[in-house]
Design a protein around this nucleic acid. Structure first.
Lengths: 161, 161
DNA sequence: GTGCTCCTGACCAAAAAGGTCAGGAAAGTC
DNA sequence: GACTTTCCTGACCTTTTTGGTCAGGAGCAC
């Protein structure tokens, strides 16, 4: 349940494109702006292009730009482009797994996990990101103080930390 | 953003323990009940023991049992025990990451992602699982039909599938 | 002491993560 | 047309993670 460097980079680079607006932006500029290894970033941008999220042109005045308006590109789009399906269990979509007996309901739990991830990732757009105005669902989640610290694990509780 | 086999196995084995109630259950029985490779499962159970989630005894009448009542063990406890922190970004807790300029708000998004995961994983207990009675938050998420199919990706939309 | 069962570390193969390198192919400029 | 710029692509690489197996030791019950 972790977010890869690739996904993080993809979102950050796309945010730069969203902020830039129209004109094509060079890969090098994106890499510098967000401190991402250039050659690695180029592979990521290529994937985004293959997924129809961005466009590109080569040569002197070349660069990358968003294929759609920034308010029509969600974080989920970017994460899926580089990481594949969100919240697969053992590389299988949760609804396709067969559980027996006492763990039958576990399928519903994983489906709920996926749904809750989507409720965040599919709501936030690049436009929201660069405007620093996140949708209500995010504001609500981040406004709780608990959300801001790594939770105390069971082990730590047992050991009385 | 995927759930590992280990986490899935951990929850399923723990569900068996929850269903068994008091007496110690042998590893072999857990493995058979949930169709998990025995030797792999033993390593997982050992981790759970180290995290204080289960207890064990060796010998003739040995086996594993829950260290706490089933309604005090959450899915989050189990996932954290075997996978570590939930929703780290690049192996770092989201609140600890420094973002610059146009992606400053991304930190809040990852924090919201973690919070939304917790809102599911920390609510569901083993008791809920084996009783097939999941908390309202889960019921609500799974009751939406959209939650039950893998979402159509941007690429597929572009290609008109 | 003799099974039975958990405990532990070593090992292993395949995949994923996170990159780097080398060159080719378009687009613009002179 | 040559040259430069910038994206495009595949091959390659190292380290870590994933998903296990194997061999033996240690504690418990009888």
């Amino acid at each position: 349940m972790r977010v890869s460097a690739k996904a993080d980079y993809a979102v950050r680079a796309a945010a730069e494109l969203a902020a830039a607006g129209e004109g094509p932006v060079k890969g090098e500029k994106l890499a510098e702006a967000q401190d991402i290894p250039l050659q690695f970033l180029e592979h990521i941008l290529l994937e985004l292009k293959h997924h129809g999220i961005i466009r590109a042109r080569r040569g002197a005045k070349g660069g990358y730009w968003l294929a759609r308006p920034a308010d029509e590109v969600t974080i989920a789009d970017l994460v899926r482009a580089v990481e594949g399906p969100i919240a697969d269990v053992q590389s299988t979509p949760p609804e396709a797994i067969k559980y027996s007996g006492n763990s039958e309901s576990l399928r519903d739990v994983w489906v709920a996990v996926r749904a809750s991830l989507r409720s965040v990732l599919e709501e936030v757009t690049l436009a929201d990101l660069v405007a620093h105005e996140l949708p209500p669902v995010v504001e609500e989640l981040t406004s709780q103080p608990d959300a801001w610290h790594s939770s105390t694990s069971t082990k730590e509780m047992v050991e009385g930390r």
